[in-house]
């Protein structure tokens, strides 16, 4: 029924991507072992990357895999193994009713967002807003479009990210640095 309206490969791609995202996301929050959570996170990222390819965002799909699945999850795994926190955190509910309240709040939020999308015409009434910025797929590749937009319209934001990354690296080094080498230096001096 659905496949008669939409092309079957697109539907299959969507279902596979969504299944990867949902299964991965649920097992991130269910898994007892943080390493399993991190590996499930990779699964979710692959699902998101498939969805990006489906929506003609090929560059972002590649970056999603390289940066998220490649760098960020490896950073998580490094910290997990560095700290040796492969055991379970607190079992049960220290705060009474926290889980049911969380289900309630999240359910209301998600249902509200979906209802809003269904009734506000965001999805159907978008054509009036289109083509204000750089258009998508104007005869060039996705990388070409995205590169042109980032290096012209968003050039100041792009330069600011350079500063942000430097600050983040310096901050991480300062935060994670051990105090022991300094004591050794004083002893030597």
């Amino acid at each position: 029924m659905i496949a008669s309206v939409h092309s079957l490969p697109d539907v299959i791609t969507f279902v596979v991507a969504s299944a990867l995202m949902m299964v991965g996301a649920v097992s991130v929050i269910v898994a007892k072992n943080p390493v399993h959570s991190a590996l499930s996170l990779i699964m979710t990222f692959f699902g998101v990357a498939i969805a990006f390819v489906e929506m003609d965002a090929q560059f972002l799909a590649a970056v999603e895999i390289i940066v998220y699945a490649g760098a960020i999850v490896v950073l998580f795994l490094f910290v997990i193994m560095f700290l040796g926190v492969d055991r379970d955190d607190v079992v049960g509910e220290p705060l009474v009713g926290q889980r049911s309240l969380a289900v309630l709040g999240v359910g209301v939020t998600v249902a509200g967002v979906i209802t809003m999308m269904a009734h506000a015409g965001w999805v159907t009434g978008v054509s009036a807003l289109s083509n204000r910025g750089h258009s998508l797929g104007g005869g060039y590749s996705n990388v070409n479009d995205l590169g042109t937009a980032i290096f012209t319209t968003y050039i100041y934001a792009f330069e600011a990210t350079a500063a942000l990354l430097i600050i983040a690296v310096v901050g991480a080094v300062v935060l994670a640095r051990s105090d022991r080498p300094r004591e050794n230096d004083e002893e030597i001096a």
Binding site: A57, F59, V126, S130, N131, H134, N142, D145
Partner: peptide
Amino acid sequence: SLQDIGGQA
């Protein structure tokens, strides 16, 4: 859906 590369940026 908006055919605008700004979302990807």
